[in-house]
Write a protein that binds this DNA or RNA. Structure first.
Lengths: 191, 191
DNA sequence: CATCCTTCCGAACGATCGTTAGGGTCTGAT
DNA sequence: ATCAGACCCTAACGATCGTTCGGAAGGATG
């Protein structure tokens, strides 16, 4: 794969994250590459392609992060590692993650459907962790695992809006995990 | 206030939420109003104005929702009601909330700074609830209230992406609250 | 040497963008 | 009957949009 092409997709992710897909023109991209705008079409067929490729890159990164979690661990431990994995991707590939989370809806045609399927599959992997945890007795039997999944994925997905680039995401994930597992209630709080 | 002007801002919020600010043209807005695009300038001075007014509307709605919470309640109860209030605004004014949360960054000049100040003030009101709760002993003394605030506001802010328009948000807020307060851990889970 | 591939230029295309201008129609109050 | 104001039209403006095209420089490969 040519170096120049990957430079372009990286720059595209950066600008799409900063100004939005529709807020970034081919001319902006060309200026960032130090090139005339017509020249970009030696590497791509359309502006949409750049969005699509960034989306693919994001999907690959998030799924790969989950793949790295050993499945012989306790469900609670896998939840903790999944949260770590997600936040690490957001922090280490902030531009790609931002486009993946915020700009995907400007995909056209069946590519939008492809994204939605990808995301649903990703969310399902999280939900499965909570379901298993409940069924195995690690989590409370009356747990609303739908709501728990929503809560965790919300925190994970919203992170791109405020995560400073050099955050220790493992520690942050563990702090979220601690609150999620044991709650915020005081030991002496009357019920 | 003329009816037509408020129709326009409502339609603008709808289209900005659906296609994004840069993805919505003045021509699109005119078509939605059943009018030629030049005619819109009898009501506004620029496209930016529409974004700005939607942002103001959102800020007002979110703050007003928090204002409705009595301050003589326990901190934990106020947290529960704050979560309810936020989700209710998101569900009842989904378009405005979406623009407020997602499209604000296309505000130009000092209007962007104005938004950020508004949002920081809003987040601070949430954080204060957790701080109070901890100091009053309702919440655990070792609580990381920064992380707790982040977790709750993430769930609240991300909701616009998946909330169906006719959800019972009070019940949903209570489910989030239950998880947040008592955690997901099983009663017999080994530490 | 000739050939290919990558990369870029310069110029242009039709379309669409946000905005402006001047004039017109209707309604309701004076 | 007159006037004001709200509302809209048509037409056009300069700018910018994404994309296409023919050509050319440079290096690597045969």
């Amino acid at each position: 794969m040519s170096t120049r092409k990957s430079e372009l997709t990286r720059e595209a992710a950066r600008l799409f994250a900063e100004r939005g897909y529709h807020g970034t023109s081919i001319g902006d991209l060309a200026k960032a590459m130090g090139v005339q705008k017509g020249s970009l079409y030696a590497h791509i067929e359309s502006k949409q392609d750049l969005l699509y490729e960034t989306m693919r890159e994001g999907a690959q990164a998030f799924h790969a992060a989950l793949d790295g979690i050993p499945d012989d661990l306790k469900a609670t431990e896998r939840i903790r590692l999944a949260l770590r994995a997600h936040l690490r991707v957001v922090a280490e590939q902030l531009d790609v993650a931002t486009v993946f989370i915020r700009e995907w809806r400007y995909l056209e045609g069946e590519r939008a459907a492809e994204f939605l399927a990808e995301r649903r599959r990703y969310e399902e992997r999280f939900r499965a962790l909570f379901r298993e945890g409940r069924e195995l007795g690690e989590l409370r039997t009356d747990l609303d695992d739908q709501a728990a999944t929503l809560l965790v994925l919300s925190a994970a997905n919203w992170a791109y809006t405020w995560l400073p680039p050099d955050t220790d995401t493992d520690e942050l994930a563990d702090r979220f995990y601690a609150i999620l597992v044991d709650g915020v209630r005081g030991y002496s709080t009357p019920v």
